[in-house]
C-alpha cells in the first residue's frame, strides 16, 4: 500500500460539519489540509491511497460528502483515479464505505451533466 491516511491520527477524533464556517474539524478542512495533499502524492507516485475511517467518535453525512464528494466537485480529482486507487478501511462501521462511494458516484454524475 502506498499512501495511508488515518482520520483519527492525521486529522481529528471528532470530525465536524461540512464547512469551516460551520464549526471545527470540518470536511472542507480535512479535504484541503489532509486529503488533497495525500491524494496528489498518490497520483504522482501512481500508488494506492488507503483511508482509515476507524477510531473516531462518528461522522456526520456532510463531513463525508464534502471531503470525498468534494474531491471531484471542488478539486477535480479524476473519477477513474479514485475508482481504481482509493481504498477505504472501516472495520468498525462498514456503512461508511458505502456512503462515501455513493457520495463519489453522485459527485461524478453531477460533473458529467
Amino acid at each position: 500500500m502506498g499512501v495511508i491516511v488515518s482520520i483519527l491520527k492525521d486529522f481529528s477524533r471528532i470530525p465536524g460539519p461540512r464547512y469551516v464556517s460551520e464549526g471545527k474539524f470540518s470536511g472542507e478542512q480535512f479535504r484541503k489540509e489532509v486529503l488533497v495533499p495525500k491524494v496528489k502524492e498518490a497520483m504522482e507516485s501512481d500508488s494506492e491511497i488507503l483511508i482509515d475511517l476507524d477510531g473516531v467518535s462518528g461522522y456526520g453525512t456532510s463531513f463525508l460528502e464534502e471531503a470525498f464528494g468534494g474531491l471531484i466537485r471542488e478539486e477535480h480529482i479524476p473519477y477513474e483515479f479514485l475508482k481504481t486507487k482509493l481504498k477505504l478501511k472501516s472495520e468498525e462501521d462498514p456503512d461508511y464505505k458505502d456512503e462515501i462511494w455513493e457520495d463519489i458516484e453522485n459527485a461524478h454524475k453531477e460533473e458529467c451533466k
Binding site: P17, G23, G58, G60, D93
Partner: peptide, 26 residues
C-alpha cells in the same frame, strides 16, 4: 464507550439547525 449513531444524530441535528432553522445560516 463510543456511540457513533448517537454522535451522527447529534451532528445531523446541529447541522440542520445551523443551516435551516433560521432565515439565514447560523
Amino acid at each position: 464507550r463510543r456511540c457513533t449513531g448517537v454522535q451522527r444524530t447529534l451532528i445531523e441535528l446541529m447541522h440542520n439547525t445551523n443551516n435551516h432553522a433560521g432565515s439565514k445560516k447560523g
